[in-house]
């Protein structure tokens, strides 16, 4: 299989890349390419211009800031998986990154690439939504930050302008007594999620839920927060019964598709199961 013909550009700087995006018709950014090239080979995507940013320097890093963790746009999944900081403090991202594709895919696929591709069944967008990540974006008129709730607009569609590039992902530091986890439900390793659930929970005094974010993937056109379940949990003491009651509210607002991997009804049911499991996983990680 060969993609349709395109013109290829390998800009030497981010600004050059942005200029190309601005001036070239139907231009698409190529980062790791582990989703884009697959689509191009199947000719589900046929961009006229490819702007290859893989050789741009300085966009691959994981840095701890005072208030947040900064992940460079071109950081590969494997680097997320290997990172000690992520493993100890942002475990949810280790869970998600380590479940993406296979070793070869994780060796090339990038974090921002996965975000910008915005596949509703992908792991990182869901985990990042639970982690309340913001997206630093560079365009012709400068930099802006896209808020967590605004990034994912529709299936394969983000809030990114056609001439904008994500440069960094910022995850606010989790408060003390916070645990996080992501579980992907799939039939085989490496498959896309039938349902993916990410949870970040913070405890107050006496095991009372101080704050919680639950994000669901593969059950709507974008990753979504299970807001009803979240608000049910806040302020309550977290025991099995409360968690199970909250999980029952998990599917509210979800609109999953039926396909060969699972029916709509099955997915709605699995939301509840995996909210329970990720809640327990996240709680087990609070020391």
């Amino acid at each position: 299989m060969t993609p349709k013909q395109f013109d290829y550009y390998s800009p030497a700087s981010l600004n050059e890349a942005i200029q190309l995006l601005k001036t070239k018709d139907e231009a698409k950014v190529l980062a790791g390419g582990q989703s884009l090239l697959a689509l191009m080979k199947l000719r589900l995507a046929a961009p006229k211009n490819i702007i290859d940013i893989t050789k741009l320097q300085g966009l691959s890093y994981i840095k701890e800031d005072k208030d947040y963790l900064a992940i460079g746009a071109l950081t590969i999944h494997d680097m997320l998986e290997q990172s000690a900081v992520i493993k100890s403090k942002f475990t949810i991202l280790n869970d998600a990154a380590s479940k993406i594709g296979d070793q070869q895919i994780r060796n090339r696929g990038t974090v921002a690439g996965s975000v910008c591709h915005a596949d509703p069944a992908a792991d990182l967008p869901t985990a990042l939504t639970a982690a309340d990540a913001s997206y630093v974006v560079q365009g012709p008129s400068g930099q802006r930050i896209i808020a967590p709730k605004d990034m994912f607009v529709d299936i394969f569609t983000t809030a990114l302008g056609h001439d904008e590039v994500v440069t960094e992902i910022r995850i606010p530091n989790f408060p003390l007594r916070t645990g996080s986890g992501y579980i992907k439900h799939s039939r085989r390793e490496g498959d896309f999620a039938i349902v993916g659930v990410g949870t970040v929970v913070t405890l107050g005094d006496g095991n009372v839920c101080k704050d919680v974010r639950i994000a669901l993937g593969s059950v709507n056109t974008t990753p979504m927060r299970a807001k009803s379940a979240e608000s049910y949990l806040r302020g309550k003491k977290l025991d099995d019964k409360t968690i199970a009651e909250a999980a029952e509210k998990g599917p509210e607002g979800a609109d999953p598709p039926s396909d060969m991997h699972g029916s709509r009804e099955y997915r709605l049911e699995m939301i509840k199961v995996f909210i329970r499991r990720t809640m327990k996983l996240a709680l087990s990680r609070i020391n």
């Binding site: 290829y8 390998s10 090239l37 080979k41 290859d52 893989t54 070793q103 070869q104 090339r108």
Partner: peptide, 21 residues
């Protein structure tokens, strides 16, 4: 994965890369 090669020290699938890269 039959097309796996070592590319700058990392195992990658060579059908998921462009020659020009």
């Amino acid at each position: 994965g039959a097309c796996t090669i070592m590319f700058n020290g990392k195992a990658l699938k060579s059908c998921m890369l462009l020659a020009i890269q």
